[in-house]
Design a protein around this nucleic acid. Structure first.
Lengths: 405, 405
DNA sequence: AGTAATAAGTCAAGTCAGTTGACTTAATAA
DNA sequence: TTATTAAGTCAACTGACTTGACTTATTACT
């Protein structure tokens, strides 16, 4: 009874799975296209008008969509477009970084409704969690003033923090946060908030944000190269975030720069903001670091430019690598850095070397600048529970165990 | 009416999609686990006994599964296991390489039933296609002698050839096959055989073969590093082959070896069999090349060993890179080379440098040797139509357009 | 032996989401 | 004014999975 079955299989599905999928498809279509009539949805999803009608009725009753004014367009009965109702769902996103933490609340369409930040003790997770729980409580309070239903419609708490997760001891890696890695963070936050909690690394969160409201909106294959304190890639493959077998996919910052390099230099050592701070002697825990860097970038400070040019060389290589390995529709450069610095980096990276991305038929630029708002990671963290709850995905169709197994 | 709708959406699904998925799930479970009773299947797939019973009845009637002798195991009514019926489906796989082509026929469980090879003119696709069609005809004849139903149960023709596909002119790249790239190969083969034809690159085919009958059997996250005339990675992500946005994902052979390398050296230049042939002055179109290389490897020829050691350094780097980016369960080294050489390469690669794959909880070796049979690419090519027809996958659940759109 | 327990598998009715095809409504084009 | 077109609804239908009771076949226990 309670022995673990060695039989491996994909789960089957049933009408519930079908229905759940079709609801998600409707919401996804409305998110991508803005507002659509029932007839539009029927054509786009291949379902019958009647099926769409039933589903939309239900979604409207459940408060996820609302109708707009009927529009006349040529012959025939005017159509009634529907759009997502932003207050249909909320989520909270939390970014935990080395020196600070940010929390945001977003709605179903990805609008940030509340935000809060605080400093974080890098080596004291249990003290840090108290601070975090305080932030979240504050955010929830703000949310409650915006919508009465907010608590009922809160689908989860998404957490983003630097990876990788679950490794053997790696020595004292200053890019990782060893004390936080060991702490039972998810359990503590789940207990402290009563919410479903999910975790991803910061680059993954960035990619989710880009897909929801940024340059990857509606794309099925996009890679977000995130240049923050560390460096990582958020992978949108087949329309979903790819996590790898242990949740650490995309940790490109730890890639060795060269087969022959005896020094074992990795990308992160040379092109991360940590390396910038080190090189131009800034204190990463400085409160006005962001403004300071922004000023240096706008002033085209020579020391900063020197770092930019060196880093760009490594980043250019990594982009060629990403294109070669993933064949994405586009690569998106994102950063926790001020926009001025991000633009300098982008310009220094261009032009890109030849790669398989040189195609006669490509529709998007090979490299684009993504969201440069430093809150985008928290936004992406918040987008994850929404995406999990409402985006069409294979796993949402399958039956799940209801017994204790 | 015939304008293309700009509305983007995932397709919906219905009972047909559900049913198709559940049939695939049954076949997949039997492939992975060998033989299972209806009760086993019900537990493994989360479906009810009754649902499984109906589906298995139907699969048995359709000739995809057969029952075995009832087995008694403890109390209760003995169970009747079912297994896949190999002759339930067949597919033909075709490998097109620079100097030769191979065709195989496989059955539902991946057993090779017939094989044939021929030399190929590298710059004359229309002459080559005649040769290929002759091979396929021969294979189909052999197949017809094995099973009367073979023609009825032929699910498709899978083609594997060196990528990448659809690029802008890249100069005269000897690793690619420019004349073949321009030729309307799929259309010609489809017309000439009357079969559904699909294309992938050789490393992808290798990965599919590994997943069906090799080291990646049943794995959801595995990367196959294929060292052939060129170098490529076949990506099994979330249990499916990942193709990228233009079908060229995994072309790791074209990755630049270093950000600083002014020479633009790529992996393929230094670690492919082409580079071996060049370095030790072998003629790649030689008929007994394979045996010759096997002999050199077994004799531990110094010139060959020198290449092995140099190549291993680059391959070691690429494996660390793959682990860092994909976080797979395992990396599989495959090769068109003789097993003796593949083993030399594997030994020269080890030990692997540290990476995120160093985990306390990992179940599989970081690097394993895959199938070394030179026919494995043709086998993988053949496995693709079978996989497309019978493996559970998201796209198989969705409704597809039936109108001409 | 005889009975209880256990598990595989079937029967038959039930449920429910999407389908079908006819119909209604409301607009524009001729 | 009428025909045409398109959105959307109505109501009956279909079919795949579920439910719960039942049958069958075997082993474990007394």
């Amino acid at each position: 009874m309670n022995d673990i079955s060695p039989i491996r299989a994909t789960s089957g599905t049933n009408q519930e799975g079908t229905s759940a999928h079709n609801r998600r498809v409707m919401i996804d279509a409305l998110r991508l296209n803005g507002a659509l009539s029932r007839a539009d949805l029927a054509r786009a999803t291949q379902l019958t008008k009647q099926a769409v009608s039933n589903i939309i009725d239900e979604l409207e009753r459940d408060g996820f969509v609302v109708s707009l004014e009927a529009v006349r367009k040529g012959r025939g009965q005017p159509s009634t477009p529907y759009r997502l109702f932003p207050e249909g769902a909320f989520a909270i996103g939390l970014q935990i970084d080395r020196h600070l933490t940010r929390a945001v609340a977003v709605d179903l369409v990805g609008t940030v409704l509340a935000r809060a930040e605080a400093n974080l003790p890098p080596d004291d997770p249990s003290g840090g969690v108290k601070i975090i729980l305080g932030l979240i409580e504050g955010i929830r309070g703000e949310l409650a003033m915006i919508s009465e239903q907010s608590e009922k419609r809160l689908v989860g708490l998404g957490v983003a923090m630097p990876g990788p997760f679950g490794l053997e001891e790696f020595g004292d890696n200053k890019w990782m946060m060893p004390a936080w890695q060991k702490y039972p963070l998810l359990e503590t936050l789940a207990a402290g908030t009563g919410l479903d909690v999910s975790l991803q690394n910061d680059s993954a969160a960035c990619a989710i944000a880009e897909r929801m409201v940024g340059a990857a909106h509606g794309l099925d294959h996009a890679v977000c190269l995130y240049v923050g304190y560390g460096i990582g890639a958020g992978l949108i493959l087949n329309g979903e975030l790819y996590r790898g077998s242990y949740g650490n996919a995309g940790e490109i910052g730890m890639a060795l720069l060269s087969p022959r390099g005896a020094d074992g230099a990795v990308l992160e050592h040379r092109a991360s903001l940590a390396s910038l701070y080190q090189q131009i002697e800034l204190n990463p825990s400085d409160a006005d670091l962001y403004e300071h860097v922004a000023a240096l970038a706008e002033a085209k400070d020579p020391a900063l430019l020197a770092w930019v040019n060196a880093a760009a060389q490594d980043l250019r290589w990594s982009i060629q690598l990403i294109e070669t390995i993933f064949d994405p529709q586009t690569v998106i450069l994102t950063s926790g850095a001020p926009e001025a610095l991000a633009r300098l980096i982008l310009q220094a990276i261009l032009p890109l070397p030849p790669s398989i991305a040189n195609r006669p038929d490509r529709a998007l630029p090979r490299l684009q600048l993504g969201i440069t708002d430093p809150w985008s990671i928290a936004l992406g963290a918040a987008a994850e529970p929404i995406s999990r709850a409402f985006d069409p995905r294979f796993s949402a169709i399958l039956k799940t165990r209801t017994d204790g197994l």
